[in-house]
């Protein structure tokens, strides 16, 4: 679905600490080394700062669900999207049908610390439905 997926080593270490999701083994990605402390941006943690730094240096889209990181990246002129966008992309490219995309969006809100409420998720699902 993507030309490539870059994961900062700092972010991977954070994922490892919380338990690597089994699905990650099926995804091809490149670990990218950064000097996390040196790259630290404002109040963002080192993982988010590293991701922003890599996105800026390589001129690629940043994927994050952290609102503060998202705003910081957008302010820096970096294209930034989140899990909702990835689900919509999978739907747009025929990897998920509309029902599967809706299920995934609801699961994001229910099972993760996604920033938003179910009212907004339902609005996102409506937008997907409008493309049917």
């Amino acid at each position: 679905m993507f030309d490539g997926l870059l994961v900062p080593e700092t972010v991977y270490a954070e994922i490892e600490a919380g338990g690597v999701p089994p699905g990650l083994a099926d995804v091809s990605y490149e670990l990218v080394e950064t000097d996390a402390e040196e790259k630290k941006t404002g109040d963002l943690d080192v993982g988010e700062s590293a991701a922003i730094s890599i996105a800026r240096e390589r001129k690629v889209t940043l994927l994050t669900d952290d609102l503060a990181a998202r705003e910081s990246a957008a302010d820096a002129g970096i294209e930034v999207h989140g899990s909702i966008g990835v689900i919509a992309l999978a739907h747009g490219r025929g990897r998920l049908d509309a029902d599967e995309a809706a299920t995934q969006m609801r699961a994001l809100q229910r099972e993760t610390s996604l920033f938003t409420t179910d009212a907004v998720i339902e609005r996102g699902i409506e937008l997907l439905d409008e493309t049917r």
């Binding site: 999207h81 909702i84 919509a88 992309l89 996102g124 937008l127 997907l128």
Partner: peptide, 14 residues
Amino acid sequence: EQRIVEEDVDWGLN
């Protein structure tokens, strides 16, 4: 939040 979700859906579909 709605603006962000709309931006993401728009990006994903296009």
